[in-house]
Amino acid sequence: MITKEEVEHVGWLARIRIDETKSDAYAGKLNSVLDYFGQLDKVDTEDVPPTYHVMDIVNVFRKDEVTESMPQDAVLSNTEYRKEGNFKTPKII
């Protein structure tokens, strides 16, 4: 069971502000899904390797060759928050 406190902690980890008044409601909905996930506890996975990649390929590389970068205008084209060629955000301290 996920607690109200855990919901708030996970909300912080995921950088999603959760109003205190809503964390109970969140916990309720998340718990019904987690309950359902709990059925996997019953599956015997002893000695079963995890499948991270469904296709068995390795060593995909590119050569160390320069390709064109984007012009600065294009880089900054999707934000109005910019200054002297940089992205601009609120302070980070």
């Binding site: 855990e6 909300g11 980890l13 995921a14 969140y26 899904v33 506890d41 599956v43 079963v48 995890p50």
Partner: peptide
């Protein structure tokens, strides 16, 4: 909801029970 659940499933203490288990079941 999905981001919160996914964050939870990968977080310390739950990674093996949810994420890793799911990948084994995937196998």
């Amino acid at each position: 909801r999905r981001i919160l659940l996914g964050t939870y499933a990968l977080s310390a203490g739950y990674h093996d029970r949810y994420y890793l288990k799911a990948l084994k079941v995937r196998t």
